[in-house]
């Protein structure tokens, strides 16, 4: 008889505990989505019923043409505009920062991280004044501007990481083969950055898509975005449309997950 294969055991936990850990993870991950779904379809969910007594699609039907629908369109447009602007600015910034060495590199990385880490309310206090001076306070443009600030910071850090890990060999090769700056960027740099650019667009979109505080402080309620609408509904106790809005907020987020997955292997990423 063959002896059992000697696979080195690396298990730290025995299987009943493992099973319980996995079950706990499953509940914590899945339950919130189930609740939002129930809440969004639930009709007359009175205390102390564990499940709603009836189901209705009324809140979902009200989305199109309702305030949630309009807010979602606003948010989507704002997100796309923010993503494009942030990537356009952050790509050259990240490329430039990657050339730094030593202490300056850390200083630059910290500076770029500041608008990302600054509590949005505090960041909004400064941005409100800037937009006032620029004459775009309480306008959609002002809100867009305020969203791009943290998005640029975040995405610059992302590109800094990308350019640091990939080096400049490909660009150098293109140069020595006779490529101009233009050709180097259009034929080498940008095509080879398709994955990180997709990731950056997704992250910048999400930063704008989920933004509450900056929209509130800088926009002053002039632009009704989806998160603002959801916040209002939740605070007003309008659970059913609030749950619908919350699910609407998750949908593009989940779609963006695919793009984010590309960056899942990087360990220097930041939370959104």
């Amino acid at each position: 008889m063959m002896p059992p294969a000697l696979v080195p055991q690396s298990r730290v936990l025995t299987s009943p505990w493992r099973a319980m850990a996995i079950a706990a993870l499953a509940i914590s991950t899945v339950l919130p989505f189930v609740i939002l779904l129930l809440q969004s379809f639930g009709e007359s969910w009175r205390w102390p019923d564990v499940l709603p007594s009836g189901l209705t699609g009324s809140a979902w039907r009200a989305v199109a043409g309702g305030s949630l629908g309009r807010a979602a369109v606003n948010s989507a447009a704002l997100g796309v505009a923010t993503a494009v602007a942030a990537v356009c600015v952050a790509l050259p910034v990240g490329r430039s920062l990657a050339q730094l060495q030593g202490a300056w590199r850390h200083v630059a990385a910290a500076l770029v991280f500041l608008p990302v880490a600054a509590p949005p309310i505090a960041l909004g206090a400064g941005l409100q004044i800037v937009t006032l001076w620029l004459g775009i306070a309480s306008t959609s443009v002002g809100v867009w501007f305020s969203h791009t600030v943290p998005a640029i910071g975040y995405v610059s850090l992302l590109f800094l990481g990308v350019f640091t890990s990939r080096g400049t060999e490909a660009e150098e090769a293109a140069r020595t083969l006779g490529a101009s700056t233009w050709h180097t960027w259009t034929m080498v740099v940008i095509p080879s950055l398709r994955a990180p650019i997709t990731e950056a667009l997704a992250i910048a979109f999400l930063i704008s898509w989920t933004q509450v505080a900056l929209t509130l402080v800088v926009g002053g309620g002039a632009l009704r975005t989806l998160p603002l609408e959801v916040l209002t509904l939740v605070r007003a106790g309008q659970d059913r449309p609030a749950a619908v809005g919350a699910l609407l907020l998750i949908v593009p987020a989940i779609a963006a997950l695919a793009a984010l997955r590309l960056g899942a292997r990087r360990t220097d990423a930041l939370p959104t």
Partner: peptide, 8 residues
Amino acid sequence: AGLTPVSA
């Protein structure tokens, strides 16, 4: 070293 299984 015991890092790879043996079959015989």
